[in-house]
Design a protein around this nucleic acid. Sequence first.
DNA 1: TAGATTGTTAATCGATTAACAATC
DNA 2: TAGATTGTTAATCGATTAACAATC
Lengths: 182, 182
Amino acid sequence: MQIISSDELGRRLDITPEQIRKDLATFGQFGRKGIGYDVRELKEKISNILGLQNKWRLAIVGVGHLGGALANYVNFASLGFSVVALFDNNKKIIGSEVNGIKIHAVSRMKKIVAEKSVDIGVITVPADEAQSVADFLVAAGVKGIWNFAPTKLSVPPTVPLVNEDLSVGLSALSYHMSQDKE
Amino acid sequence: MQIISSDELGRRLDITPEQIRKDLATFGQFGRKGIGYDVRELKEKISNILGLQNKWRLAIVGVGHLGGALANYVNFASLGFSVVALFDNNKKIIGSEVNGIKIHAVSRMKKIVAEKSVDIGVITVPADEAQSVADFLVAAGVKGIWNFAPTKLSVPPTVPLVNEDLSVGLSALSYHMSQDKE
DNA sequence: TAGATTGTTAATCGATTAACAATC
DNA sequence: TAGATTGTTAATCGATTAACAATC
């Protein structure tokens, strides 16, 4: 498939074609009137809009079950993300490797973040340690934070923060399941 | 703290007090004019609205790194969720346990879901197997699906579906990090 | 009674949808 | 030329904010 219309895109994504056209037009004109959108070009433009031409480098702080799973997560690569460092405070695991990536002491964060050119800090520690880890990450100079701890973090406005609190989705599911009963 | 005002709630959650009052009023009147909201009562009412008085029972399909991490996830308990069964197709791990929970063959799903009164199916298999797993889960009678595979699933409208696609959050982070540069 | 604060109605704002000229 | 489809302006709809009566 070379070309796709806003109509077909809308059908596939469950969005109205008007919305598709409006959203895309916000970022420029990359369709052709009377024809549609070139799929390859569209992909590339969207990738550029999202900044995915960058090869972002991640560091995961907290190598528990979730942190370990993320260190092994294969889908990162397809988006151009790679995990380049791990941090933990547990002396038993510092120095060892997960998926070929070394675990460092949290105290060495500043040094390692600089050495490995870490862009994004991933927080997978318990909620009560998350703010302090965030502060460390910001001080170490990361450009963004991806937070899995179920707590509200305060970071400078210059550092984008995305929260991945699983209890939000689960609560939504619980809500809908309760509603549908009636 | 016994009582909280919409003003204070708004400050803490970064929401306008009007929005807080409007949203809460949608579900009934549980504040007191001139006083504010009783914290304990508010918690309980919200918990009930979200259906969290139910003790939802989860089954995780796909015991890879992510599925395994979720099987060990401690924060489920505080919301009243519990993992009661695991499924995988890998013969090497079928019959073994993770966090005390047994791994069953996917082919036994219908039987086990009934036996264990599973409410929610959690999908942590690769994207290309996710739809087929979803179909199995629906046929087995789960009431809701929590999908971690990065793909769009089609399920009956009677079965609530929540997607937890990590690439969405990561792309958002990438976008903001690219914008802030300028 | 004066001050505080909710629930709700009215006013504003922004986002979605409809319509259509431009054009392939 | 007729048909298809974009980008954009105008119309509609819904959600947020402002205002205020009710009341503790």
